[in-house]
Design a protein around this nucleic acid. Structure first.
Lengths: 254, 254
DNA sequence: CAGTGGTCTAGACCACTGA
DNA sequence: CAGTGGTCTAGACCACTGA
C-alpha cells in the first residue's frame, strides 16, 4: 500500500467503516487490485480490522453502489471492469455562477408573455393538450458581457403562481427552484451556430459557435418548465469531474 | 400519500429500508414535504414501520448522502433547500456509442507520433518536465459519416506499454480504459467554430459549430492522457439525467 | 443537559449461486 | 449444498448541539 508510490490521501482516522472503504478504494484506484481481482471476503475483513460484519458490509456496500466493485453471493466481491465513465456536472444557479468568477450579475428580462401554448410550446413541454404557458426571454450579464441568453417556457397548469411573478429581480430558474419541487429533469447539450437573433442577444458575431443547454423538468409526470440556455462558445465551459465508476448508485435500491 | 395525485412509482415490497427510503423520497419529490420541513425522527419512524433503528438509519443516511435531506443532531432531519443541481453524464465508449444508434463503427488512425513533449503537450498534460509522449489523431466513423475526431496525447512515462500499440483496431480510449487504472479525471465542454483543419477532419463546412469535450485523466498525481474529442454540432448531443440533489454523495465519508 | 443522530456490536435468518 | 452476501435486530456508547 504505502510503497514508493506517492500517497495521494491519508487514511482517515475517524470512522472505521470509512477507513475500510478508503483502504480498498485506494488499492483499486492505484492499480494494486486490478479489475477482476477478488477482494477479501467480509469475514476476512472482519478479522483484519477486528470489527463486526455490519461495519465491513457498510464499506463494501458503498463501494458496490458507486460501481467500483461488484458483489456476487457465494463468489465474493470483485473489482469492476470500468465500462462506462460517468461525470457529475454541477449546474449552479446562474447568479452564483457569475458571482463565482468575481463578476457583477445583472438580469434583463427581454420579454415575458402569457399565452395559449403553440404547437412548438407543446412539443418543448412534451404535452398533448394545449394550455396556458408563460414564455420568458432574458439575458444574464456578467459585468458588461452577456453571460447567457435564456429562453424559457413555464407550464401554468403545474405552476399557476408564476403568473404573478415579474422575474425582474430573480431569475426564473432561481425562483422555480425555490418554489416548485421537481423529480425528474433531462439535459441536452449541443453546439450550434448563432443565427442573427441569437447573435444580437448574446452580443456576438452571427455564426459564432454557441453552447446550448436544453433542460426539461418534470414533477412526477407533469411538466414544469423547459428552458434553453445559450452561452457564447469562446468563453463558456461546462466542467465535469469524473469518477471511475461503472455505474452510478441505483436510486431505487436505497 | 396516495391521494388523487397520479402515483409515479409503487412502494417496493422487498427490503424494508428501501421502502422507507422510497416513501420519504416520494413525499419530498411530490412536494408533500417542502424544503425546510422536519421529517419524522428516527425513533418515530422505528415505531411507524415497527423496525430497528439501524433500518431507519440506513434509509435516512442514503437520503442525506444524496442531498435530499439534511441531518442535524439534536434537531432532526430536514428536507434540503435545492441549491445546485447536479447532472450525471454517461460517457460511453465511442464504439458502443456509435453502435447504440444502429450504425457501423469504423476507426481511422490519421496519425500516430512518438515524440519528446512540446510546450503545448506539457501544458495539455499539466506537467512541468519534458517526457516522451504519444500523439494520436483519429477519426471515428458512424457508417459513412464522421462521428468524432479525436486528438489524444498519452504520457509514456505513466503508460510505457502504449509504445507497442498501433490503435488500428481498438480506439485509444478503449485500450486505455482496459489497461490503465485511473483515479481522477476532468472534463471541459465547450462549443467552437471549426477551423479549416477540423472542418476537413469532420467533413463539415469551415466555421460550423462543434462540440468539444476535453478530458484529462490522472492516476494519483501522474497524468495518463489528455484528449480532445470534437463532434459535429448539428448531430451530437450530450444527454444528462438530473436528480434533484443539493450535493452528490461525498466519496470520503464512505 | 437532554435529545438527536453517528456509529458500532454480536448476533440472526435467509436468498442466492457456484463448486 | 455449503459458502457468500443482503438484510435486519436489539441493543450500546458517544458526539454533538440546540433549547
Amino acid at each position: 500500500m504505502d510503497q514508493m508510490e506517492n500517497q495521494v490521501t491519508d487514511t482517515p482516522k475517524g470512522q472505521l467503516s470509512a477507513r475500510i472503504h478508503h483502504d480498498i478504494e485506494q488499492r483499486i484506484l492505484l492499480g494494486e487490485w486490478a479489475p477482476g481481482f477478488r477482494i477479501p471476503l467480509e469475514r476476512e475483513l472482519m478479522e483484519t480490522y477486528g470489527c463486526a460484519r455490519m461495519t465491513v458490509n457498510k464499506a463494501l456496500s458503498a463501494l458496490a453502489a458507486s460501481g467500483l466493485i461488484e458483489r456476487r453471493r457465494k463468489a465474493g466481491s470483485f473489482v469492476s471492469q470500468p465500462l462506462s465513465q460517468s461525470a457529475v456536472i454541477e449546474i449552479p444557479d446562474v447568479r452564483a455562477e457569475v458571482e463565482a468568477i468575481g463578476q457583477v450579475y445583472r438580469l434583463e428580462v427581454v420579454s415575458r408573455q402569457q399565452r395559449r401554448s403553440t404547437r412548438d410550446d407543446m412539443e418543448r413541454l412534451n404535452v398533448q393538450s394545449p394550455r396556458q404557458v408563460l414564455a420568458i426571454h432574458c439575458r444574464h450579464f456578467a459585468g458588461r458581457r452577456v453571460h447567457a441568453f435564456e429562453d424559457r417556457l413555464i407550464d401554468l397548469v403545474s405552476v399557476p403562481e408564476a403568473v404573478d411573478i415579474s422575474f425582474a429581480d430573480e431569475p426564473p430558474g432561481t425562483w422555480l427552484r425555490g418554489h416548485v419541487p421537481w423529480s425528474e429533469a433531462e439535459n441536452r447539450i449541443s453546439a450550434f451556430n448563432a443565427d442573427s437573433m441569437l447573435a444580437t442577444r448574446l452580443d456576438v458575431k452571427e455564426g459564432s459557435a454557441c453552447l446550448q443547454v436544453e433542460r426539461s423538468t418534470w414533477r412526477g409526470k407533469r411538466p414544469i418548465t423547459a428552458v434553453r440556455m445559450f452561452y457564447p462558445g469562446e468563453t463558456y465551459r461546462l466542467v465535469a469531474h469524473f469518477s471511475p465508476k461503472g455505474a452510478m448508485p441505483r436510486r431505487d435500491s436505497a
